[in-house]
Design a protein around this nucleic acid. Sequence first.
DNA 1: GTTAGTGCAAATGATTTGCAAACAG
DNA 2: CTGTTTGCAAATCATTTGCACTAAC
Lengths: 139, 139
Amino acid sequence: MAQNQTGVSRATRQRAAISSALEQADSFQTAQELFEALRLEGQKIGLTTVYRNLQSMATRGEVDVLRREDGEAIYRRCESDGHHHHLVCRECGMSVELENAEIERWTTEVAHGHRFSEVTHDLVLFGLCSKCASRRKKQ
Amino acid sequence: MAQNQTGVSRATRQRAAISSALEQADSFQTAQELFEALRLEGQKIGLTTVYRNLQSMATRGEVDVLRREDGEAIYRRCESDGHHHHLVCRECGMSVELENAEIERWTTEVAHGHRFSEVTHDLVLFGLCSKCASRRKKQ
DNA sequence: GTTAGTGCAAATGATTTGCAAACAG
DNA sequence: CTGTTTGCAAATCATTTGCACTAAC
């Protein structure tokens, strides 16, 4: 958890590699997958470093974190900066960013109505993208 | 995963105890918490049994399963039988069941629009219930 | 009696942590 | 130089699995 005391953050080769890998990906992926991808592309990096950087990036809001149906965390660098939702392929992780102001309104209203405070919400749609669906048929 | 071959299911003391504990609870709780609660009330039961029963109950739709923000699974026997959403206190697990037909419509529409199939969705609101909020202020 | 269900101990798998070495500024 | 970041190995922690035993029906 403890990052550092000065609040300064250094530009390391590893962090750059992780950032770059995230930029290119259009899918949500697990820390382990990201780690393997980086190793395959020849990067020298440790799994721990991947976890630590993803965590700090998530804290800074630089990446989005979701939970797969099995509970494993998946990460993605999204296009839109603000709050939004996702439609995610449960097979390949490919995802689409979604927005719906109506839902935002409703959740706020409901939260207040039940006297809840500090409410956040997450809406995730898991399904099978068309690519994965047709790949399945063939086999 | 493999349950049994006949499809028959036996009424055991342990399953009854779990069911009863779930009936009484108005909160989502982890398997471990449920296990401890059962032990405290004097039940002789194993943690594995709790996990296995929760799993089969979830499969049969007898309990709802959610993921806490840290990824841990939480369970609850809900009032409404059909599909619904939840407002959950992140401190005590207390929860409210929610329904919103508009969201159902929208998610289906969006899923189709992006050519996704077999789409399921989950909307969870995590917050602080009024009890936990006031408990916090006092301390 | 048979077979489903239980429970312990051990295995698994993701994520975290301790700590010494490597590196950025 | 000085403090941050890394990376390995070891520790955690939830969850699952193997297997011998117990208990439904």
